[in-house]
């Protein structure tokens, strides 16, 4: 890590100003993305623990992911990629939105982190023959058009002996009430229209897609919101938010 307090840059200043404004909304823990910031430590911890299990690492080391090449699909502003990079991972962040990638690059530079952000899609990365120890599809499965196809593309990029992790929303009456009516309309955590409930994916559907793609589901967990503590945590209830890890055999 190195911090240069008087950094010079050749990038167009107006562009930087525009992206900086957006970056601030992405990275403000009390701003538009507040819900994601609260949610983030839980998924960082789970991803770390699953990767440590799969690769025989010590979760207590502060560089526990050192040497692991990890792909973060739908990386947005880099809220997940940065902590994983700090833990030592060689991160590749992919997002089809140009703005997200510019925001993520700008913030990583400010944080002194080397993250390979790419304005591209999972399909194009797979086509280019990219391989990873871990492929993450966190909060993206519910936005794709064809879940089995998307999962098979992701699984194809996992090296033998590697790991795929997905986090998404279950399609239940409870998730309709909480994620859409609650989070979007009542709590205004997310812009209205962020989610379409009929695109949510049940754990059974995700597990089937992963198995068909040659993966073996190795762990799953619900992610629960405690409104009294205003905090997210792990739990067995997978009715709304959940995460699933699947191993690719050697």
């Amino acid at each position: 890590m190195s911090i240069d307090l008087n950094r010079a840059s050749t990038v167009d200043q107006a562009e930087i100003a525009r992206f900086s404004a957006i970056a601030e909304t992405w990275w403000d823990p009390r701003g538009k993305m507040a819900a994601l910031h609260k949610f983030n430590p839980v998924r960082v911890g789970w991803v770390r623990d699953q990767a440590c299990r799969r690769f025989g690492r010590d979760t207590k080391r502060i560089d526990t992911l050192a040497g692991l090449r990890i792909l973060d699909i739908g990386c947005g502003g880099g809220i997940l990629s940065e902590p994983l990079a700090r833990l030592g991972a060689e991160m590749v962040g992919a997002d089809p939105a140009t703005t997200n990638i510019e925001v993520a690059k700008l913030h990583a530079e400010k944080s002194g982190l080397a993250i390979d952000y790419r304005n591209t899609t999972a399909e194009d990365l797979a086509e280019a023959g990219e391989k990873f120890d871990v492929v993450l599809a966190m909060e993206v499965v519910e936005h794709v058009a064809d879940v089995p196809l998307f999962v098979s593309i992701c699984a194809g990029m996992v090296k033998p002996g590697g790991l795929m992790i997905a986090a998404t929303l279950n399609r239940t009456l409870k998730s309709f009430a909480m994620a859409i009516v609650g989070a979007e309309y009542v709590l205004r955590w997310l812009p209205i229209g962020t989610h379409q409930w009929d695109k949510f994916v049940t754990p059974a559907e995700l597990e089937t897609a992963m198995s068909e793609a040659g993966l073996v589901v190795s762990a799953e967990s619900g992610v629960l919101y405690n409104p009294l503590a205003d905090r997210w945590g792990l739990g067995r209830d997978m009715d709304v938010n959940y995460m699933m890890a699947a191993d690719k055999p050697d």
């Binding site: 430590p41 770390r48 979760t59 080391r61 902590p83």
Partner: peptide, 15 residues
């Protein structure tokens, strides 16, 4: 600090 780093957090940030 150790807890923050184990969570991939920046130990110097205000939170």
């Amino acid at each position: 600090t150790v807890d923050a780093l184990r969570a991939g957090d920046d130990p110097g940030k205000a939170s």
